[in-house]
């Protein structure tokens, strides 16, 4: 079966700065690939390339067999800082993607409400983003992405801006939402345990310019839930990725910019 997302020899160069090069990646129809790496390794940039927001300087991306040139129908992104419009209510924010996709008024009312319910924001439809917590804002961002029925879901450190407890709650809710409507998902994070918990595979980016250092085949049973955290293999993989990344992390932290 052909993978839904195919990345071949992807590279990005901004002027003199080569951010990453030679990245290959395939994501199947019901597969989650987590990308983990130190800050500045270009993992978020790679995700934007897969969304079609930034063109690659080398290599090629195809989605559902078609070469990518601009943002495609059927691909939706959840943003690190939520990306909600502060002048729109929760309902209007969720409805945004549907409206741009040209859905009818009745369809928007129906679907937006459905996904507001799915992410647990029922009763908060008429709140503005500044009136609700960060966790609730990201639930809204997730509902907006889900409402367009994406076949590819791109997650850009979606829980990086919420507190630790909310983050855990949202991780497990996302896992259970994904179980009921599995799609291709690319999950970018700098948290190693999150990468192992979410991914069927974990792509470890490293180096400068960064490249794929290792692809970890997770092979933890699904559905994943809190019990997954107690699985011996979870601890083993987390430790393995930690060793891979952390040896360099201290070097990176103490590096002085020339």
């Amino acid at each position: 079966m052909k993978p839904r997302i195919e990345v071949r020899g992807a590279g990005i160069r901004f002027g003199a700065l080569q951010v990453f090069r030679g990245i290959d990646l395939e994501v199947g129809e019901r597969e989650v690939v987590a990308i983990v790496g130190p800050s500045g390794c270009g993992k978020t940039t790679l995700l934007r390339c897969i969304n079609g927001l930034i063109p690659l300087t080398e290599g090629e991306i195809t989605i559902e067999g078609e070469p990518l040139a601009a943002p495609r129908e059927g691909v939706a992104m959840v943003f690190q800082h939520f990306g909600l419009f502060p002048w729109k209510t929760v309902f209007q924010n969720v409805a945004y993607g549907l409206r741009l996709a040209g859905a009818s008024r009745a369809e928007i009312a129906d679907k937006a409400q459905k996904f507001i319910d799915v992410v647990g924001l029922t009763g908060f439809e008429n709140y503005y983003p500044y009136q609700i917590s960060g966790g609730m804002q990201q639930r809204c961002g997730l509902a907006r992405a889900l409402s367009v029925a994406p076949r590819v879901l791109l997650m850009d450190e979606p829980f990086g801006a919420v507190d630790a407890q909310t983050r855990e709650i949202l991780q497990f809710e996302l896992l259970s939402i994904w179980e009921t409507r599995p799609t291709s998902m690319v999950f970018v994070t700098h948290a190693i345990d999150e990468a192992v918990l979410m991914g069927d595979r974990v792509l470890v980016l490293k180096g400068s310019p960064s490249a794929v250092h290792e692809v970890v085949d997770v092979q933890l049973p699904r559905p994943r839930n809190r019990a997954t955290l107690l699985h011996p293999r979870f601890a083993e993989l987390r430790e393995h990725v930690w060793q891979t990344l952390m040896a360099d992390a201290r070097k990176a932290e103490f590096k002085v910019t020339q």
Partner: peptide, 20 residues
């Protein structure tokens, strides 16, 4: 980021003015 959200949802220039 808001302009990026609009582009990600395939907004055209006119819709970008209207919504953002």
């Amino acid at each position: 980021e808001l302009i990026e959200v609009a582009h990600s949802f395939r907004s055209g220039e006119w819709a970008l003015w209207r919504d953002v």
